[in-house]
Design a protein around this nucleic acid. Structure first.
Length: 664
RNA sequence: GCCCGGUUAGCUCAAUUGGCAGAGCACCUGUCUUGUAAACAGGAGGUUAAGGGUUCGAGUCCCUUACUGGGCUCCA
């Protein structure tokens, strides 16, 4: 995401009783137009107010600029109103849903008989431009009472519903008359009212304050987010404080599209989703296979070093196992339907954990073995709804780097701390280093199992580990799974998008269900604590994220082809071949481009394949016993002796550096 | 699962109101032997996603299915 501008520090402004904020802002010499314009204020109670608000007593307010987070929301909210006005101008039968600001833009939902077509959107955008240009003012108006509101909104069924909900939920709002039911009217230059919408506000002073916007797309959305409700047509738009900001945002989207792992995956021949296999089921081609193997191998090595033990489990199992684990009742909808074998029902596994618990339970366990860390690259299958599968990030067959850690209650805190550090270090080794954490905890909902004390203890342990990491921690109350709290690690990629990566999850349910025990030092039998932990989440997803992070230019150690030899003339090929053979002898993935293409074309091809090292040799290099490097960034290092060149490549790959190589 | 698009050569995309399926890249063959992002010429490549319907005639219009894109819903 383009970084939101920081809330600018602006000194408060005092608004004299009976005058408007706009007057005070102008008097204070603050910008009233341009990309820093003050568009609303925050009053003493923290509420945002329109600029034409005139307090009844002197009040100190905080001016809010259009490029601040609050200001952007106001801008986008007002843009949504303009969108709705434009739609109702062009499609008078359209009924209004809701139209809030969202990240980077806004949307508005409409009920229309025919969904919007692409050229409808063009017309709507054009009409919006006219409205913006005409400089309509937004004016707040309070409804006298619920009945007045209903009378005025009689042709807007969805708005009526909103008014009713508001009345029901917060009945005294209307009764006290201090009420919140307001409408924003739009007036044109001649003071004629041209449109209005039930709305809490605040809004920009006028449509003139919308410097740059664009309609992005339309889509269906359920009224009030429930699939039981009718579907409305949603139009998405984006709006920015300046044309440049809009341009930068559109460029960001273009950059994101260029990095789309689905496109890169087919351009670089990494993986595909053959229709014949089925939706959401990927095959990895040889080059993708190399990357995947390198990803896995490094992870495997690090896990071994950290005391994990590797296990394997089958892909299908009898029904009973998932009844024991409790998955079947909860997740049957997202499991593939069972197959009948010898009178029993077998399911494809959607999770690895039950298998690991059986391994734990295979014999008596001693406290001396704990923490016991089981690890598996376990492939699972989930019947994701057809509308949600997406590239490698949401698939129906995925391989989790799944680990289950059994500890004593006393060890859990330290284990979590150790785990979080391990997870962050390992992600950093793959080149992701910009993280924040999310702590998902329980709320009052009855769905959560396990004792209050257990939850409190586990939550405290997670929170302590998170705090000690020094990373930003975002609370997610109520977001925990029913069986325990979790930390998730969110990583920001090269262009600032965040992806959920690893999760560390405490589970109070499974040890109970599987009757897991260990024998403590005092001879008593105790229940171990269980921590689920996935680091990549799924290999497929992680592969996709890394592909986008690197835009296909994988670090040399992951690159499917690390070195391509490019002869200047055909007869230089044998010289390069012997060089490449030396590299291969040291485990480097190297080849010579012996195609009929000219040297320049070979460079272009290698460049498009994002090969880290191009090694050229012509008459000069051959007679000097040297080669010349061209790196992926276009930089060169010429006339390098063969020994040095071999060492250079080998050392660079071994270093697992995630940037470069480069002569710079 | 729901709504709206889309599916034409390996890839990216053309094809007038229904009237002979085409281009670039990639691939193959030949010529050329060149110092850092595209040599030249030729060739091959198609049941227009699949199935059905309307029509003298369908890539084009209609129906069904599959896949796919954007959203909604969902995501242990």
């Amino acid at each position: 995401m383009s970084a939101p501008s920081k809330q600018p520090v602006v000194d408060p402004v005092v608004v004299t009783a009976g005058t408007t904020c706009a007057e005070a802002i102008a008097q204070a010499g603050l910008p009233t137009s341009g990309p820093k314009a003050i568009v609303v204020v925050r009053d003493a109670s923290g509420q945002l107010r329109d600029l034409d608000w005139a307090p009844s007593s002197d009040e100190s307010v905080e001016p809010i600029a259009i490029d601040s987070p609050d200001g952007l929301n106001v801008l986008r909210h007002s843009a949504a109103h303009v969108l709705a006005q434009a739609v109702q101008d062009l499609f008078p039968e359209a009924k209004l849903g809701i139209g809030p600001p969202v990240e980077n833009g806004f949307y508005y939902d409409f009920s229309v008989s025919k969904p919007f077509q692409p050229d409808d959107l063009e017309k709507i955008e054009k009409r919006m431009q006219e409205i913006v240009k005409s400089g309509q003012t937004f004016k707040r108006r309070r409804f006298e009472d619920l009945e007045a509101a209903k009378a005025e909104l009689k042709d807007e069924p969805f708005k009526l519903e909103l008014v009713d909900i508001k009345g029901d939920v917060d009945a005294d709002v209307m009764e006290v008359g201090g009420g919140e039911l307001t409408i924003y009217d739009n007036f044109d230059k001649d003071g004629k009212r041209c449109w209005g919408d039930l709305c809490r506000g605040p809004h920009l002073p006028s449509t003139r304050f919308i410097p740059a916007f664009k309609i992005m797309r339309s889509a269906a959305a359920y009224w009030r987010g429930s699939e039981k409700n009718p579907q409305l047509q949603r139009i998405y738009g984006t709006a920015w404080p300046s044309r440049d900001a809009l341009k930068a945002y559109l460029q960001f989207l273009e950059e994101a599209a260029k990095r789309d792992h689905r496109k890169i995956g087919s351009d670089l021949d990494l993986f595909s989703f053959p229709d014949e296999i089925g939706s959401g089921l990927a095959v990895f081609h040889p080059k993708g296979g190399i990357i995947r193997r390198e990803l896995e191998n490094y992870s495997r090595k690090r896990h071994e070093e950290e005391g994990y033990q590797f296990v394997n489990s089958p892909h299908i199992t009898k029904e009973q196992l998932f009844l024991t684990s409790g998955h079947l009742p909860y997740y049957k909808d997202t499991m593939f339907p069972p197959m009948q074998i010898e009178g029993a029902e077998y399911y494809l596994k959607p999770m690895n954990c039950p298998m690991h618990h059986l391994i734990y339970r295979a014999r008596g366990r001693s406290y001396r073995e704990l923490p016991l860390r089981l690890f598996e690259f376990g492939t699972v299958y989930r019947y994701e709804k057809s509308g949600v599968v997406h590239g490698l990030t949401r698939v129906r067959g995925l391989t989790m780097d799944d680990s289950h850690i059994y500890t004593t209650q006393e060890q859990m805190g330290d284990e979590i701390k150790f785990l979080l550090k391990f997870v962050l270090d390992l992600l950093a080794d793959y080149g992701l280093s910009d993280f924040y954490l999310e702590l998902s905890t329980r709320d009052d909902s009855p769905k959560f199992v396990g004792s209050e004390e257990n939850w409190a203890e586990a939550t405290a342990a997670l929170e302590r580990a998170a705090t000690e990491s020094g990373l930003e921690l975002v609370p997610d109350p109520g977001g925990a799974a029913f069986y325990g709290p979790k930390i998730s690690v969110q990583a920001r990629d090269a262009i600032g998008r965040s992806w959920q990566m690893s999760t560390i999850q405490v589970d109070f349910n499974m040890p109970e269900r599987f009757g897991l025990e260990y024998q403590a030092a005092d001879g008593t039998r105790k229940r171990p604590a269980l921590i689920h932990r996935a680091l990549f989440g799924s290999i497929e997803r992680f592969f996709g994220v890394l592909t986008e992070h690197y835009a296909g230019a994988f670090p040399a150690w992951l690159s499917p082809i690390q070195v391509v030899g490019i002869p200047i003339r055909t007869d230089h090929a044998p010289f390069l071949q012997s060089f490449v053979d030396r590299l291969r002898g040291q485990g480097i993935r190297a080849e010579v481009d012996e195609s009929d293409d000219r040297m320049q074309k070979k460079i272009r091809t290698a460049q498009q394949q994002k090969i880290p090292f191009m090694v050229l040799a012509g008459d000069e290099d051959v007679s000097n016993g040297t080669v010349s490097f061209r790196y992926r960034d276009g930089s060169q290092r010429n006339g390098v002796s063969l020994d040095e060149a071999v060492e250079h490549v080998v050392e660079f790959v071994k270093s697992r550096a995630n940037s470069g190589p480069s002569a710079a």
